[in-house]
Amino acid sequence: MTISTIKVTDQTLTSTTKESDLRLKDILKTLPREVFAKDRRKAWTTLVINVLMVGLGYVGLAIAPWYLLPLLWIFTGTALTGFFVIAHDCGHRSFANRRWVNDLVGHVFLLPLIYPFHAWRLLHNQHHAHTNKLDIDNAWQPWKEEFYENLPSFARWGYRRLRGRFWWVGSIIHWAGMHFDWTQFQGKERQKVKLSVLVVLGFALVAFPLLVATTGFWGVVKFWLMPWMVYHFWMSTFTIVHHTIPSIPFMPEEQWNEAKAQLSGTVHCDYPSWVEFLCHNINVHIPHHLSVAIPSYNLKEAHRIIKENWGEHIHEYRFSWSLMKEITDECHLYDAEDCYYQSFDEYYAKKRA
């Protein structure tokens, strides 16, 4: 299937449009229908390749000498991040046409990561509906000064670590703190989340004793914990970079603009090609935030068209230590004066003045 480009000629719908006038539906009109189309062959081929990559990683862990284990942990953990991305498409119903297929695949592929599918799906949908909306978005939202000041000292210390050089454990905190409490949901949603939590806990109660019995406690570290930590490194890194640079604001609800938040409030970041391959281009993130209906295998083409029509509004970066240093050095607390960020150094210098 050839995807054609829709080039916008009406100036009200081009990249010269003022951000305050942007409407999400106008941006979506510039995307061809083909980028929203599900392709069963591509979806299942991606799944099979991902399973093979994870299997290759575990075979390597089983037979490799000890000095190759770090490389194999990185490979296997990154391939497991691909499992999450497949479940992510399932959560957005962009993997398969049938809901039960999406739910089944989503549950199965999140089991090794001990992630309750429906809890993640519903909380993640909140992030999409309220991206960069102050007090409502649940992904890497900067804390307000008054909230930070009223915390006990240990909580302030922990927050400084998470917004600094220990950003890579942020996904673990998010996972443990938000995804196992089904009482935060209501009605049918609560029952679905409860089912997902019980499925995950049941899996863990079987898998971990079996792993200990067959490989010992070192086997749990070798085959599960270390790849799982690599997975969370990528999840923490991907999610903080997706919406966190000094020039992207968090807006109060009354000033929030949906199109601006999804187009200009989302970062496109190029990672090494092997990471992109194993993680199914999830970091081609702007089209995904414009429409969750775009499957992962169409994200690159959708981004090319968005860049062609709306290039002046988007942020593009390449993954590097300098990028992570900028984010973790500067993007700490909410700055109420301009809706952007202030660093801890700026905050404490202001307090001392």
Rank of each mutant, 00 (worst) to 15 (best):
I3Q: 03
T9D: 12
D10F: 14
Q11E: 13
K18N: 09
S20M: 06
S20V: 12
L22C: 00
R23S: 07
L24T: 01
V35P: 03
A37V: 11
K38E: 09
D39K: 09
T45N: 11
T45A: 07
T46Y: 03
L47C: 05
L47E: 08
N50Q: 07
N50S: 11
V51Q: 01
V54G: 00
V54W: 00
V54A: 01
V54P: 00
L56A: 08
G60H: 02
G60C: 03
L69G: 07
I74E: 05
G77K: 00
G77Q: 06
L80P: 06
F83V: 08
F84W: 11
I86Y: 04
D89Y: 05
G91S: 06
R93N: 01
R93P: 00
S94L: 01
F95K: 04
R99I: 06
R99S: 09
N102A: 04
L111D: 06
L111Q: 13
L113C: 03
R121T: 09
R121S: 05
H124I: 10
H124M: 10
N125I: 07
H127E: 08
H130E: 08
N132Y: 08
L134R: 04
A139N: 13
P142M: 09
W143Q: 11
K144R: 14
E149N: 14
L151F: 10
P152M: 06
R156Q: 11
Y159R: 05
R160F: 05
G164A: 08
H174F: 09
H179M: 15
W182I: 15
Q184L: 15
Q186F: 03
E189N: 14
R190I: 13
K192T: 14
S196Q: 11
V197S: 08
V197G: 10
L201M: 14
G202M: 09
G202A: 06
P209C: 01
P209G: 03
L210R: 01
V212W: 11
A213D: 09
T215W: 06
F223H: 14
P227R: 10
H232K: 13
M235N: 09
S236K: 12
T237H: 12
F238Y: 15
T239Q: 12
I240A: 01
H243W: 10
I245P: 03
F250G: 04
P252K: 09
E258H: 14
A261T: 13
T266A: 12
S273R: 15
V275I: 15
L278P: 00
C279F: 05
H280S: 07
I286M: 01
H289W: 03
H289I: 01
L290T: 02
V292Y: 01
N298T: 03
I305S: 02
I306T: 09
E308T: 10
E312T: 12
E316Q: 08
L323A: 00
M324A: 03
I327N: 04
D329C: 03
D335R: 15
A336P: 15
D338Q: 11
Q342F: 11
Q342H: 09
F344A: 10
K350E: 13
R352E: 13
A353Y: 04
